[in-house]
Simulated assay, not measured.
Amino acid sequence: MIFEYTPRRAARSPVTDAATFKVARLRQAPSRGETALDMSHLIDLSYNYHSPRELRWHLADRLGLAPMAVALRESARA
């Protein structure tokens, strides 16, 4: 499954002091001739992600898939 997410800046991590991001919008990428589906309800939009990899693992867990079965791409920033 391919997902497109729109990140927005979030606070620095108090644990790692690294920049984090929140997801403003999450959509399932459309197949040919279809429209993108809004999937934002699948995740906590207030969570501070440390990396796209963390978001991918979170989505895989929520969907009961192997992490390698989930692909992400970033859309324009909100």
Rank of each mutant, 00 (worst) to 15 (best):
A66E: 05
R27E: 15
R9V: 14
A66D: 11
I43D: 00
A24S: 09
N48P: 00
P30E: 10
P14Y: 04
L26T: 13
W57S: 01
A71Q: 14
I2V: 03
D61L: 05
A19R: 13
A11W: 08
S51T: 12
A29Q: 14
D17H: 14
I43C: 02
S51Q: 09
L26W: 14
R27A: 15
L42Q: 02
R56C: 02
L72Q: 13
S51Y: 06
P52C: 03
T6M: 00
S46K: 01
V23Q: 10
R9N: 10
A19K: 11
Y49C: 01
L72P: 15
R56A: 02
R27M: 15
A36Y: 06
L42E: 03
V23P: 08
A69E: 07
L59V: 08
V70G: 14
V15F: 08
V23T: 10
I43P: 04
S75C: 03
T6F: 01
E54D: 10
G33H: 08
R25L: 15
S46W: 01
R77C: 05
P52K: 06
V23L: 13
Q28F: 13
D17N: 14
L42T: 02
G64R: 11
H50V: 06
D38E: 02
L63Q: 05
H50C: 03
A66N: 07
S46L: 05
R73P: 11
A60P: 07
A69F: 09
S75V: 04
H41F: 00
G33L: 05
S75N: 04
R77V: 04
F3D: 15
W57V: 01
G64F: 12
Y49W: 08
R73S: 12
G64C: 10
Y49K: 02
Q28V: 12
A76H: 09
L55P: 01
T20Q: 15
D44W: 02
E34G: 02
S75H: 07
R62P: 00
A19P: 07
T20H: 14
A71S: 14
A10K: 11
L37M: 05
A19E: 15
A76P: 05
